[in-house]
Design a protein around this nucleic acid. Sequence first.
DNA 1: ACACTAAGGTGTACGGCGTACACCTGTCAA
DNA 2: TTGACAGGTGTACGCCGTACACCTTAGTGT
Lengths: 243, 243
Amino acid sequence: MAQQIAVERRMRLSRDRVLRAAVSLADEVGIGQLSMRRLAQELDVVPMALYKHVANKEELLDGMVEVIVGEIDPAAGGTDWKSAVRLRVLSARRVLQHHKWARQVLETRTKQTPAVLEYMDSFIGMFLAGGVSVDLTHHVMHAIGSRMWGFTQELFDSPAIPDGEAQAEVPPGVQAVRFQQMSVLYPNILQIATAARHDDDSVVGHGCDDQFEFEFTLDLLLDGFERLHSQAWTSKHAGPERG
Amino acid sequence: MAQQIAVERRMRLSRDRVLRAAVSLADEVGIGQLSMRRLAQELDVVPMALYKHVANKEELLDGMVEVIVGEIDPAAGGTDWKSAVRLRVLSARRVLQHHKWARQVLETRTKQTPAVLEYMDSFIGMFLAGGVSVDLTHHVMHAIGSRMWGFTQELFDSPAIPDGEAQAEVPPGVQAVRFQQMSVLYPNILQIATAARHDDDSVVGHGCDDQFEFEFTLDLLLDGFERLHSQAWTSKHAGPERG
DNA sequence: ACACTAAGGTGTACGGCGTACACCTGTCAA
DNA sequence: TTGACAGGTGTACGCCGTACACCTTAGTGT
């Protein structure tokens, strides 16, 4: 009987419910107004209750990113890589537009969460499946990633596999296990990462020539501008390349 | 005599000293650790003293941006627009790399401060002086700006001239005066902005077709990727366009 | 039916934040 | 010398994230 009454009671909290509530609260009031206290209030719960489901606010934000990354359409099959990538990026953009706080949060994220890794892996997969070389795909990811998204940016700069521990603490063999896991979960990321570092000691090491990546994209854009300019391109008539 | 002792005393505060101290504190300890209280401590002063020189923390951050934008090299004269732009962007990048907090702060800035406007004006000037059309320059600024910088992004979306006031409050004729001021201070920005909106009612209005700008850049990149791919480009041998 | 256990929710408290407001103090012009 | 005003101070308020000890509830094995 007391259990019948319980039906009337507040639904039980869950990590998922917390994250979704956080996303819609941020949608409504902006990320600046999203506090643990306010979120708790929205869920009709005392602030500390949230900490049974997320470790702290950082993890909450990570979780929110996971939620919205999940809203991006999966890769479209059956077309050339270019159209597939185009569609996907536009879908991602739609999501980011809907959650206006996302760009800002993305910029500050440092941890690689599963949904993000999976998204990137599948993104890379579109190029590789289309026959684009691993080398070019690598640079392309830098160009697309850091400019459109912000959160690809650090993938190759810092270890892709989270290892907050100092290297000294990593037991021998653990690297190998992680490598194994990566190769199953995110084969494409691994391919890109290892190709980039094949003459380096570490496996998924710190690095990439940042300056090179930056100039790669810069020159790609500048060359594009120049081409349009020399064609007397005009926005009136068409998009790039069709002028 | 008491004045002789004053020589030994703490130097007087000034807006400039506050801003510079804030920049170097952020450089040292990161933006997350930059608080009014900590900054005051660094300046050997009580927290509230800072408020005699900056209105609030937002304005402090705006001021910090002003400071570092001032560190970007001026436009190089005597070369083609492409090289000039290239040099300038790389200079800007150097500055952003030196102040690691800058990207993040830039993303959250909403106000258009003079140094930023001046930088953009002169940036636009490089294209126009090189003979690039106003139309193309407009789109180019969107492409370069929002992707490399983040803070060009909103220039054409929100009014370039700060008007926190609701439109109703703006006395008639004030718009005209501002327009006049703009045309003197930032002629190039004005040119771009007005060209973009010549068939609209407002002068420096809200707008631009966001979606168009986004796809413009996306396609520019994708077309670039495709071209490199079809050339079997490789990072081993050269940068873009030289493969 | 009951006691046990772990997971989930609570209450209190602490140190930090930005900043409003009233107040002193030192400097300089008249 | 005086008076005004810019610049520095002290106190206080209401937010924030979250540590820690506690209580409640739901689900289990007997």
